[in-house]
Amino acid sequence: MSSTTLTQKQALAFATPAFIALLPFLGACLYILRFSLSAEKGSIDGVSLQAYRDLMTPFFGRSVWLTLKLAFVASAVVMLLAVPLAFLLTSLRSAAARRLLTVTILLPMILNLLVQAYGWILLLGPSGALNTLLKTLGLIDRPLFLLFNETGVLLGLIQTSLPLAVFPIVGAVRAVSPEHLEAASSLGAGHWRILRDVTLPLLRPPLVGAASIVFAFNASAFAIPLLLGGRRVQMMGVAIRDMISPLFNWSGAAAAGTVLILLTVLVLVVSAWLVRITTQKTGG
């Protein structure tokens, strides 16, 4: 063992502060889990599985399906946009251009969601700029409905989670050693081939990592379906909010939250596992 490999004790010492910071969260998790098993709806009292049993309705099932579907599609599109953005960001030579692009990508995290939704309505609403333009050009008779449905929610999810994907990928792209690429290039491989055979395989773990984060983030979204889905797109986050606030079914919300978390964690674990076995294969 060289001196730079950590002993278990050292590793633990290095990790302890982060655990302490995470402690309130773990407390909250246990609290939620306990609440989901409560026999009462508004307080923790007794033990019962009733809250989970109450979730077994076709409506909740559809909500789960819709949540997973939208989160998945949004993650796929985000990755399709994030990788080129990361390539662009790392290849810009001018520092000013790099700063500008960085800030632009971060914008969706900064601006109040209500105000952003307002921006989208002005652009894509039934009488927004786009529909007006298409109508004037005579391309459509009736407005295109791009908001207040699944399309609107997808757009919002993509927009808000894009920064989450771009920056980890930028970090990973920086770490790709140029020698690999130059070697491939000197062998006469075209850009698409290098991308397929060299860059993407090298980037696979961070790419899957970024996609998982985006997926998890989107699966728990609630403000976007509320504002851009016109409340018509019943994702689980919205269902949970409804249970908390007007229905005061806190144990039900805790149960639904637990189900959502378990599902997301399952997806994360499976994708991490897939990365492991595929990289082992290509590595071997």
Binding site: A18, L22, F25, A28, C29, Y31, I32, F35, G209, S212, I213, A216, F217, A219, S220, F222, M236, G237, I240, R241, I244, W250, A253, A254, G257, L260, I261, T264, V265, L268, V269, A272
Partner: peptide
Amino acid sequence: ELLFTLPLVFPLVMLGIA
């Protein structure tokens, strides 16, 4: 990594009330 990703997964409303 998974453990420290969890806060991201939680529906924020739920976390807020907890």
